[in-house]
């Protein structure tokens, strides 16, 4: 099957300005008996920023973590339906697909910065060593490039041997982004990456996300609506495990089609 390009996405009826990098098709997720995600249909446009918004507990993190099979780490979790990944058009949640292969292509940054208690250099090099890269100069080049891409290079270039955990919260989160970028993923997942940070650090991460837009497809969870409005191209509003509305961010914020979306955006609930 060809990679769908600049098309009207069938299930949502939304016109995209970029090829589809991934899409959920009739996707459900279960934590044991708890049916956490219900029949999600949504595209993720290539090299665009897609934001997932919705009240706490609506399933944003659950959906995000499905994209790199994090749920496989815990027993009792179950995916039903499809999340298709392009250009090879595979169902990335299928049991036949190796989760490690998926995680090599789809990287993730967590809500709370979680650098390893290793040096800054080793933190960023981690994904490369895990992939068996041995050449020291190649690793050093990739680490430098990733730190530059994460706008952290100037701050740490003189102390790459210092512990990653010794950095400030905002720097730690950019370190985690650099760690994810070093492996050159196709998709970058960000789960409320600024919720543990102060406003200045938040602004720098937001700026970074905007800069990374040309390099990598980004899916970001945020419960901060202004943040979604500022940095995303597409927005999906979720509520109680369902996808209420998906569309270009300006349309969602200016002319929401569903009443629930409008109520949420105007602060009437959530």
């Amino acid at each position: 099957m060809d990679q769908p390009q600049r098309i009207v996405h069938e299930a949502t009826g939304v016109t995209l300005d970029a090829p589809v990098k991934a899409q959920a098709k009739g996707f459900h997720f279960y934590y044991g008996a708890h049916h956490a995600l219900k029949d999600l249909n949504m595209p993720v446009a290539e090299k665009r920023v897609t934001a997932l918004i919705g009240p706490s507990g609506c399933g944003k993190s659950t959906f995000l973590r499905s994209f790199n099979r994090m749920h496989d780490l815990y027993p009792g979790n179950r995916y039903v339906g499809e999340i298709r990944l392009y250009p090879d058009d595979i169902n990335l949640v299928s049991p036949e697909v190796d989760p490690i292969e998926i995680r090599m292509r789809v990287a993730m940054v967590f809500q709370k910065p979680n650098p390893f208690p290793k040096s800054i250099f080793d933190n960023v090099a981690y994904g490369l060593t895990v992939r068996g890269m041995k050449n020291r100069t190649e690793i050093a080049d990739r680490v430098e490039a990733a730190l530059k891409a994460a706008a952290l290079w100037d701050e740490v270039k003189d102390r790459l041997d210092a512990l990653g955990t010794s950095l400030s919260g905002g720097q730690q989160q950019r370190l985690c982004i650099a760690r994810a970028l070093a492996a050159e993923p196709e998709i970058l997942l960000l789960d409320e990456p600024t919720s543990a940070l102060d406003p200045i650090a938040t602004a720098s991460i937001e700026e970074l996300v905007t800069e990374l837009r040309d390099r990598v497809t980004i899916l970001i969870v945020t419960h901060n609506m202004q943040q979604a409005a500022r940095i995303s191209d597409y927005t999906a509003f979720m509520y109680l495990g369902e996808l209420v509305e998906f569309g270009p961010t300006d349309e969602i914020f200016v002319r929401p089609k569903k009443k629930q979306t409008e109520d949420y955006l105007t602060g009437r609930f959530g």
């Binding site: 993730m108 979680n114 390893f116 981690y126 895990v130 760690r179």
Partner: peptide, 18 residues
């Protein structure tokens, strides 16, 4: 060791042994 450490590692494509 916090689960967040393990999740960070698995999310980079590491195996259990790694």
């Amino acid at each position: 060791v916090p689960m967040a450490m393990r999740e960070a590692s698995y999310a980079m494509g590491a195996t259990r042994f790694q």
